[in-house]
């Protein structure tokens, strides 16, 4: 019912994406603007995600808003059988906007249809997580000073990794060239390759990480999770091959930066952390400014 919701990155046009990035840059210069003074924001975490919740809640507090909500599903009513429909109706009586994470795909879209207040999707199962995508874009923009015509190398679990899929969609506005590097089990699904072809986006695919990203402007690493593998021998092999080490960065471009949605497991060796090309911790911090920009757009600009 509220058309100001942010459920999927595809809800935003190119101009709206750029508007968020500009606004995030303003918040980075001055994070303590009270644009949400007097507003109540609910954070409903039907599945735990401390990292995302703290980032959103910090954004609300810095903007002068107040927070209600839950993050512990064992004490919330949803485990006692209350439907999402009823929870959203109840919470929307109290809050001016709802930030929600839910284990079921499509939960946020459904909530946005029944809620009289805007919904911000903080992750619905393996589907969408648009604030992550926008902070990825902001990080790319900040490190490259542009989003246009970049070589973007995506590494790891390209099959199930939702951050990768959303990034492909979002970057499609900016004429990228993609390089998909994944083990055979975790290759990027056909529908995204079809999407690239339809939008005249160049891409190549390979399965070897080593020496394969020297032309990249962005090296976007993702988690390779054990649960995704049928064959544990194969997992062990892939895990070792797909670990980025500092000595692999020697011939990479000077402007190249490494991103990772975090938390990482073994895919980036700690010896990379001190390299100036490692940007993932700063990337996480950028999430705060981007979430301030999202909250302000959703609640202030009507």
């Amino acid at each position: 019912m509220s058309n100001n919701s942010l459920v999927s990155i595809s809800d935003y046009s190119k101009d709206e994406i750029l508007e968020i990035l500009e606004s995030a840059a303003d918040f980075e210069l001055n994070p303590n603007r009270k644009t949400l003074h007097g507003k109540v924001i609910a954070t409903l975490f039907f599945e735990p995600s401390t990292r995302t919740r703290l980032s959103f809640e910090t954004a609300v507090v810095r903007l002068g808003g107040s927070i209600i909500g839950f993050s512990d599903v064992t004490t919330s009513s949803s485990v006692k059988g209350e439907t999402l429909n009823d929870t959203i109706h109840m919470v929307s009586c109290y809050a001016d906007a709802i930030v929600m994470r839910h284990p079921l795909e499509g939960a946020a879209r459904f909530a946005s249809e029944i809620s009289p207040v805007p919904i911000i999707n903080a992750g619905d199962g393996s589907n969408q997580h648009p604030s992550q995508t926008l902070l990825d874009l902001y990080s790319i923009f900040k490190t490259q000073a542009t989003l246009e015509n970049l070589n973007i190398c995506l590494v790891g679990d390209l099959k199930y990794g939702r951050t990768v899929h959303s990034l492909i969609m979002a970057m499609s506005h900016f004429h990228p060239t993609f390089h998909f590097i994944a083990p055979d089990e975790l290759k990027v699904p056909d529908e995204y390759k079809v999407f690239c072809k339809r939008n005249n986006i160049k891409f190549k695919e390979s399965s070897e990480l080593h020496d394969n990203f020297n032309d990249a402007d962005i090296l976007y690493m993702t988690r390779v999770q054990k649960e995704r593998f049928q064959d544990m021998m194969e997992y062990e092999r892939v895990k070792n091959v797909y670990t980025l080490k500092n000595n692999m960065l020697e011939n990479t471009k000077s402007n190249m930066r490494i991103l990772h949605p975090l938390p990482r497991v073994t895919e980036i060796d700690p010896d990379v952390d001190s390299n100036e090309k490692a940007y993932y911790f700063k990337q996480a911090q950028n999430g705060l400014y981007v979430r301030q920009a999202i909250l302000s757009k959703v609640l202030v600009s009507k």
């Binding site: 439907t83 999402l84 429909n85 839910h102 079921l104 795909e105 499509g106 939960a107 879209r109 459904f110 619905d124 199962g125 589907n127 079809v194 339809r198």
Partner: peptide, 27 residues
């Protein structure tokens, strides 16, 4: 969500280069 709570399904009909596809409005 449509397979877990009482939510009416909704699909968008897409034509990708002659091929007919249905996209779930929710997931």
């Amino acid at each position: 969500i449509t397979n877990n709570q009482s939510v009416t399904t909704k699909f968008h009909v897409l034509h990708h280069d002659e091929e007919l596809m249905f996209k779930c409005h929710y997931c």
